[in-house]
Amino acid sequence: MQRIYIEPSDARRSTTPDDGTPNEQNPDGIAPRARRRDKAKRDSRKLGMFCIQLAFLAGVCYVGNAVSASLPIAIPGNICSMAILLVLLISGIIAEEKIALISNFLLKYMPFFFIPAGVTILTSLPLIEGRIPQFLLVCLLTTVIVFLATSITVVLVTRLQKYVHAKRAGRDARLAAVFTLKGDPRVAQDTPADTTREGA
Rank of each mutant, 00 (worst) to 15 (best):
M1I: 07
Q2W: 10
Q2I: 11
S9R: 06
D10S: 12
R13Q: 11
S14E: 15
D18K: 09
G20Y: 05
T21K: 11
T21P: 05
N23C: 06
N23H: 05
E24Q: 12
N26G: 09
N26V: 10
P27A: 07
G29Q: 03
R33A: 15
A34V: 06
R37H: 14
D38R: 14
A40V: 06
K41E: 08
D43Q: 09
R45T: 13
L47E: 14
L47T: 12
M49C: 03
I52W: 08
Q53T: 05
C61K: 03
A66N: 06
S70V: 03
L71F: 07
P72M: 05
G77M: 06
G77V: 08
C80Y: 00
S81M: 05
S81E: 04
L86D: 14
V87F: 07
V87D: 11
V87L: 10
L89S: 10
S91R: 07
G92W: 06
A95F: 07
A95N: 11
A100P: 01
L101F: 05
I102N: 05
N104V: 04
F105V: 07
F112C: 03
A117N: 01
A117V: 02
G118C: 02
V119Y: 01
V119E: 01
I121D: 01
L122V: 00
T123W: 10
T123K: 06
P126S: 01
I128G: 00
E129N: 01
R131F: 07
I132W: 00
L136A: 09
L137G: 04
V138S: 09
C139D: 00
C139F: 00
L141F: 11
T142E: 06
T143Y: 03
T143P: 00
I145W: 07
F147H: 12
F147S: 12
L148Y: 12
T153P: 07
L156G: 00
Y163W: 14
K167W: 10
G170Q: 04
R171H: 15
L175M: 11
A176F: 08
A176N: 04
A177K: 00
D184T: 14
D184G: 06
R186N: 13
D190P: 00
D194H: 09
T195S: 14
G199V: 11
G199E: 15
G199R: 14
A200L: 10
